[in-house]
């Protein structure tokens, strides 16, 4: 009896979760199929009214928009490079933290924690001032450097949590066989740590892809402007109104990489998200 009740309850709960997560996504997809004319004149409702549909016109237009294509390029280059560099650096630090005893460990961890809590907006002013003097303003590196710094804490935690699960006896065995700590690290641990590294990379990529504060403050042209900033400046045929449906199409395009990553790696992402935060 209570079992049936519980099952019904769980079923309802699952439905609610799915609605919660997917309804707004469905909405933005639906909006992207409304025609721009209909949107300018007002077309309330979840689905495009009959005759107010645009087919794939908005997508075609978005994918022919140079500014948006360049933003996609910038976002991909900057996010991927920042991810690779950040994870590479974090791997080193996480290994040291998980495996080695050293003075200053607490300092590293505290720094990482403080940075994770850091209000990024309080940095954009001085960073802008610094970047404009050294010529990093409106460049890929000007974005990559802050992305790396701000994803390092997340990557370090996630990785050190993963590293602690690795059977280190194997490393010890290697060391007994005469390998230096460094060789043991490279030959034995790296292959074992790869899944964790991969997870950290996905989370880092999400951060970089999502960033908005640096994206609008440290860029000013298509040369380096990433997708979120480009979206906020999106201009349609009518310069006075945000082209809602066009923007929706662009937003859907920008979300596709995320959905793909989530579809393929959901298990890893969840493990990574919770590993860094809860064990302890």
């Amino acid at each position: 009896m209570s079992n049936v009740k519980e099952r019904v309850g769980t079923g309802v709960g699952v439905t609610l979760i799915l609605l919660w997560c997917l309804l707004p996504v469905a909405w933005i997809v639906s909006l992207s199929f409304k025609s721009q004319e209909a949107v300018t004149n007002g077309s309330p409702g979840f689905f495009p009214a009959s005759g107010a549909g645009a087919g794939f016109d908005n997508y075609k237009q978005v994918l022919q928009d140079d500014a948006f294509l360049l933003a996609i390029r910038n976002s991909i280059v900057v996010s991927l490079s920042a991810t690779i560099l950040s994870v590479a650096l974090a791997t080193l630090a996480a290994y040291a933290i998980a495996r080695l005893e050293f003075r200053g460990k607490k300092f590293v961890l505290t720094t990482a924690l403080v940075i994770a809590m850091f209000p990024v907006v309080s940095l954009v002013g001085p960073l802008f001032d610094m970047w404009r003097t050294v010529g990093l303003y409106d460049t890929w590196w000007g974005l990559m450097i802050p992305y790396i710094s701000f994803t390092l804490p997340l990557a370090i935690w996630t990785l050190s949590a993963f590293f602690r699960e690795i059977p280190w006896e194997m490393e010890q065995a290697a060391q007994v066989d005469g390998a230096t700590p460094w060789q043991a690290f490279r030959k034995v641990i790296v292959p074992l740590a790869a899944p964790g590294v991969f997870t950290a990379a996905i989370l880092t990529f999400f951060f970089a892809w999502n960033d908005f504060v640096f994206g609008i403050s440290l860029t000013s042209t298509e040369r380096a402007r990433p997708i979120p900033a480009a979206l906020s400046f999106f201009v349609g045929a009518d310069p006075f109104n945000r082209p809602a449906s066009l923007l929706a199409a662009a937003a859907v395009v920008a979300t596709i990489p995320i959905v793909v990553l989530v579809l393929f790696f959901q298990r890893k992402i969840v493990a990574g998200l919770t590993a860094g935060a809860v064990k302890g």
Partner: peptide, 28 residues
């Protein structure tokens, strides 16, 4: 469920802002 629950997490905040702004819009 895991996949769906990760989608809001992964969606760009700016996109989420737009989605809700347009959802609440009285014209569209």
């Amino acid at each position: 469920i895991r996949t769906s629950i990760l989608i809001p997490y992964g969606v760009i905040t700016v996109v989420s802002g737009f989605a809700w702004q347009f959802a609440f819009s009285n014209t569209n």
